[in-house]
Design a protein around this nucleic acid. Structure first.
Lengths: 321, 321
DNA sequence: TCAACTTATGCTCTCATTGAGCATAATAAG
DNA sequence: CTTATTATGCTCAATGAGAGCATAAGTTGA
């Protein structure tokens, strides 16, 4: 018969100081994983058990991502990998937490247009459309995030060539040619880059590859799946609060959402949407700030409402310009 | 070590004559499944291979649903079940296709409110009732879909009792107490019914169980997962067209979407949204109807645009009243 | 003390999308 | 030629989201 091994792969995510973090092993080259044991009554429980035992992190929301069984030469007997995403509040500081955007620099667009603006919150500049007519950043060119983006756009267009379907996919997924940037397309973008030979992981990588830390095998693809899922989930389920401390200001909450979504949000609209949904309640306390008016502290009302099941918790993230 | 077996479970869906169908085995009590073979280079490919070989159905869109490994007494060695959903155009008519709503009568709300409005909407005559066959006799009170719905609501409320969180979940998921009906919550509803002991599959089923055909093990749960996924997907990806013939009228397209979504849509708005997205093009032909003005024939422009990758194909399904 | 600055918070305005219904067009039956 | 029936075109109102102005409440420095 078919002998089969199984493995659980965990993508543990946290957010601290506006930076999304992922728990890694082996100098950031691998993700924690463990076998499914017979003692585990279910996959989810097995996952939770060994992760909490090995990492001393309390796991909040857990979610199955995808199951792989690619046949590779080394894999005998056949290996089934079941990947999970878990959200945590960053308990264990000894562990090797890494900035998620080390692996996907192109997914972090929080600084888009921030220097173009002076004033009322940050603006979503549409300068990605200028991919073709890029004037080069002052000084260091490709080392800026802006510069890296245009470099990616150019490489993609070179790969697409005259192929209309390819160009269309590139424009849709990377927000080129006036198309809006869709932050949920993390996995699509990763796969497109992979297909275009722009990743070290590609089967036949080109001379130039996109900046960003690679990982062996399909680990980085799993990471992309997790980020895509989280960005999608955060819109309609209050999973952000799994990443927040007990009490927080609305600005901290917004910064956390922005860290995940990878793009800036309109401050006043964010407040409006959060408050009008009664997702949070005032604690009565205030957070003194180094400058300016102190901010109210809030706490999540999840326990009062109906636990994690809760619907109608959409966050003000929509298509940007 | 841990000996493990694996199994691929397929939920094959099709739509014909406004009825969503699922391919079943064993008198509608089971779903097709097969082992993962070493010859298969990937799960998806393995799935496609044996399904097409065994059922002679051409598979369109394929999607992984969920991976289970619940430890049950009979399962030694441990069994990992990987479930997939596949869309097809109903090639093999010998196979045992069953009305999906046999299994979830409460999910079919296409006749909801049609009598309340009484005019712009049309009357879905006996066809949904004939779906269940035996329960189709009109006029006997509790056997009506309406009657069954109120019976479910009552049973849920009895289960919830004074528990505010439970009541809240019931109201949210089943659209009670003025809450809107959300057609995507298929799995949530199934699990709620399971938890409430209202299904024959429940660990300790109550005296009264909800109408609808049960299945052994967690098969019906997998089915619910598939329907939930399809209803979600249909909103932002043009997967409906996988279920349509080469050419079709907009009305046929709408009826197919309604069959999946389980609720009626506004005809003119449906047309507007489909047409303004350039998802379809006129063939130039017309479909003569038994009565009334003949309808234009259309064809999907997927090949022209960018294949299945295509975004921005949202269908006019939103929260109903 | 006041002025300048910074951040939180409240409110309005506009635009796009969506739900709903009216009106017209095109066919068959009588 | 009238009626019935369905397809198709168009308008209107309500909602929600994006953007920006205005005010409140603290700080620091003169």
């Amino acid at each position: 018969m078919n002998a089969i091994r199984s493995e659980l792969v965990a993508v543990l995510l946290a957010v601290q100081d506006e930076v999304p973090l992922v728990l890694t092993l082996d100098q950031g080259r691998n993700l924690p994983s463990g076998p499914l044991e017979t003692a585990h009554s279910s996959l989810q429980r097995g996952m939770r058990l060994w992760v909490e035992r090995q990492t001393q992190c309390h796991l909040g929301h857990i979610e199955q991502l995808y199951t792989f069984a690619e046949a590779s030469a080394q894999d005998h007997p056949r290996l089934i990998r079941i990947s999970y995403m878990g959200l945590t509040r960053l308990g264990n500081m000894q562990a090797d937490w890494r900035n998620l955007y080390e692996y996907f620099p192109w997914e972090n667009r929080r600084d888009c247009g921030s220097e173009a603006r002076g004033e009322t919150g940050r603006e979503t500049g549409g300068e990605t459309g200028s991919a073709t007519g890029e004037a080069g950043s002052p000084g260091d060119g490709a080392e800026t995030r802006q510069g890296a983006d245009t470099a990616i756009a150019r490489a993609l267009m070179r790969w697409a060539g005259k192929d209309a379907a390819r160009r269309w996919r590139c424009e849709q997924n990377f927000g080129l040619a006036g198309q809006p940037w869709n932050d949920e397309l993390v996995l699509h973008r990763y796969e497109l880059l992979w297909e275009a030979g722009l990743l070290p992981e590609s089967t036949r990588p080109g001379a130039w590859t996109v900046p960003g830390r690679p990982m062996p095998q399909d680990r980085r693809r799993i990471l992309a799946t997790a980020l895509a899922r989280l960005r999608a989930k955060i819109r309609y389920r209050p999973v952000v609060f799994e990443l927040m401390p007990e009490t927080f200001t609305l600005w901290q909450l917004q910064r956390t959402v922005e860290a995940i979504a990878g793009r800036p949000l309109h401050k006043q609209n964010f407040r409006r949407l959060i408050l009008q949904q009664d997702l949070v309640e005032e604690t009565g306390g205030f957070e003194p700030l180094p400058q300016g008016r102190p901010a109210r502290l809030y706490r999540f009302r999840g326990d009062v409402i109906g636990g994690r099941q809760l619907m109608g918790s959409k966050l003000p993230i929509a298509r940007s310009v």
